[in-house]
């Protein structure tokens, strides 16, 4: 796939809206529900995931393409990718603990849980397709997939947090208060995002 402005824009629309990690692939739902009670922490979580996903797709692609594939040991993909992700998450955790203790406390257990976040591993596994020999500029598109996929996650979690902040004051039946109404909201948002699926017709123009 050639690197052109048009292609990048189309790719972005595809990742953020049409193939949103949470709403169409259903990956990364744990922090999506766990850390989406306040917009501020949701944004922090989104940024942390963006950082991890971008770097993870870069390193995982490199390791897969230039280490695992030449040696014919692709079956180690999952364990090697998890290793990369775990190391990155640890770095992010130490960085946040130092630079922003309040965000570190707000994210709590969900920060180390990015390690096992299926969206992060998911993007690395999906990027394996880009490592095929006939695919041009695979590294660039892998990183783009990571960055835009994570931005899709960021958009989803911040939208959700905004809705949940409003739900706090809403008059909801007692039995639906808290997580039930959040799950219903997530389902409705997912249906709304299905509307973007028609954009994938546009994306077939990608060269």
């Amino acid at each position: 796939m050639q690197i052109t402005i048009g292609n990048i824009l189309l790719f972005m629309v595809s990742c953020v809206l049409a193939n949103n990690f949470i709403f169409s692939r259903f990956l990364g739902c744990c922090p999506f529900l766990g850390v989406s009670s306040k917009v501020e922490t949701a944004f922090g979580m989104g940024m942390a995931v963006t950082f991890v996903m971008a770097l993870a797709s870069l390193f995982c692609y490199a390791i897969n393409k230039w280490v695992l594939m030449p040696l014919g040991i692709e079956y180690l993909q999952t364990i090697a990718f998890i290793l990369v992700i775990a190391a990155l998450v640890q770095c992010v955790e130490m960085f946040l603990k130092k630079s922003s203790p309040s965000l570190y406390n707000a994210l709590g257990i969900y920060l180390p849980l990015i390690t096992t976040n299926c969206a992060v591993l998911g993007v690395c596994i999906l990027n394996v397709d880009y490592a095929a020999p006939e695919f041009a500029n695979g590294l660039f598109w892998s990183v783009m997939n990571g960055v835009f996929g994570a931005i899709g996650f960021l958009v989803a979690i911040v939208l959700m947090a905004g809705i949940r902040e409003r739900l706090e004051d809403a008059n909801i039946p007692k039995s639906l208060k808290g997580f039930p109404i959040s799950l219903i909201t997530a389902g409705l948002m997912s249906i709304a995002f299905m509307g973007f699926a028609s954009l994938s017709g546009l994306l077939s123009g990608l060269q």
């Binding site: 390791i63 695992l68 040696l71 014919g72 180690l76 090697a80 990369v84 190391a87 770095c91 630079s99």
Partner: peptide, 30 residues
Amino acid sequence: LPIVYAVAILGGLGVIFGLLLGFVGKKFEV
């Protein structure tokens, strides 16, 4: 050979990331 590769690669990655984390841990020590 594939067994040696697998062990060497994963072990090597582990060592590299271990050193990296050790370095970052020192730098961002709280």
